[in-house]
Design a protein around this nucleic acid. Structure first.
Lengths: 237, 237
DNA sequence: CTCGCAAAAATCGTATGCAATCTTTTCCAT
DNA sequence: ATGGAAAAGATTGCATACGATTTTTGCGAG
């Protein structure tokens, strides 16, 4: 009612938490493989890089460790996560459990606006696949993850949405680590099929397609252990 | 199979992070309802209470906010979460999606040691139900949650295990807030049935029982909105 | 040349200080 | 009295400081 009310609205968007912004940038860098697994992320370095104190940098690293993208060892520091094949399997097992249900929930809530958002998303995905630049693969992985995040947001459960954010981020890391390159274009067509099912409100079909899709993604990984954990430990850095 | 499979009893518990210890104590207090939803948790107060600096207290509160047990508002502080009915529904929707799958995974991994652990757990649960002390209800809710956490640990997926820890904690809060007291003894018998199915390796049955169990828990809640959010906001403190 | 060990440097964990922001109280005009 | 502005007080956000721990470096013995 008051005129004074108007000054209020979006002041803090500029003032948004700095730690969160740093976390987002670091997460992107990790998921995009610009930061290799095992890389040390020292508080001081991150701090100077983003021009904040160690306090803030530390908070950002802490957040990433909760998401599983960073491993923090006491008195030693933070390192970009280096998920083991077992961990990778668990990530995909979790997705197999959760995402078909998310697809079902989303199928019942699709609006024309959602459909449009998905189409735009798939277009972009297709563009990245066609593109054959040096970092096309990165963009491709990221875009593919965004499809799943969009789906989770449509499903309308903020808790599951957060879980999916973590799982997608970890998946991107795993794919970058263990992926066998080729078959991702297949993933694109699967996304298209899933959207089709969603548009038709065919929840069961969307769910089944999603399950297969996840299986395919995991099947494209090479999760054989290459060497004993001791050796890996030694080579990690 | 491995000796290493046995549960790690907190090795570095002496050296353990202090923030983590504080987080655990606060979480217990929140889940037990010793800290009412909406209660302000100021950094200074928490710090003096646990005899640490604000830095450490802040870290503990931050962790709890990631788990959804505490809500942090910028420049205002941390408050014990006050989940809305909608949030409560989402918690249980998430559990309906995840826990049946966890039951299936656990069914395939049950060892005699696990069975023994479950029996001990159920015994304790039964004791709390029989007991009619003033805080019997608290202990009951907690023990009931522990059953689900034990199951998650047996399932052997650390990611899902962490998700379940969050969901169980939030459920406890929700039950304390919206629970209609009576029917929890029914929950105990359901736990017993689930264990039975697990012992027999009957994964499908364990999964189905779990699903019904979650439905029953949620059905015992009164999730009708009592008043407009504005009024709730006003009364919250 | 390698190994071991001690000193130096780097890094982390935590306490504390200061500015910014929010909350409460005070106090004055209506 | 009541409403509201301004000051006082409390609390948070962030930077910095310092001891503790880890890692690296330097150097002498084998």
């Amino acid at each position: 009612m008051n005129i004074a009310d108007q000054t209020f609205p979006a002041i803090d968007s500029a003032n948004e938490d700095r730690a969160q912004a740093i976390r987002d940038q670091l997460r992107d860098a990790i998921v995009d493989r610009r930061l290799a697994p095992g890389t040390k992320l020292s508080e001081g370095e991150v701090g100077t890089l983003f021009d904040v104190s160690r306090t803030v940098a530390r908070a950002a690293l802490q957040m990433l460790s909760f998401e599983g993208l960073v491993r923090i060892e006491r008195n030693r520091g933070a390192f970009v996560a280096n998920p083991s094949p077992e961990e990778a399997r668990q990530v995909f097992a979790s997705r197999r459990l959760i995402e078909p249900g998310i697809a079902i929930a989303a199928a019942g809530r699709m609006t024309p606006a959602h459909v449009a958002a998905f189409k735009a998303q798939l277009d972009e995905e297709g563009r990245f696949i066609a593109e054959r630049g040096p970092n096309a693969r990165r963009s491709e992985i990221k875009a593919s993850g965004d499809f799943h995040l969009l789906l989770a947001s449509v499903a309308g459960n903020v808790i599951l949405q957060r879980f999916m954010e973590e799982l997608v981020a970890r998946s991107s890391l795993v794919i970058a680590l263990y992926g066998r390159s080729g078959i991702s274009s297949c993933g694109h067509s699967e996304h298209t099929q899933i959207l089709e099912a969603l548009e038709n409100g065919n929840a069961e079909r969307a769910s089944a397609l999603m399950l297969h899709h996840i299986d395919h993604i995991e099947a494209d990984l090479d999760l054989r252990v290459r060497s004993g954990p001791a050796l890996r430990q030694a080579l990690e850095f």
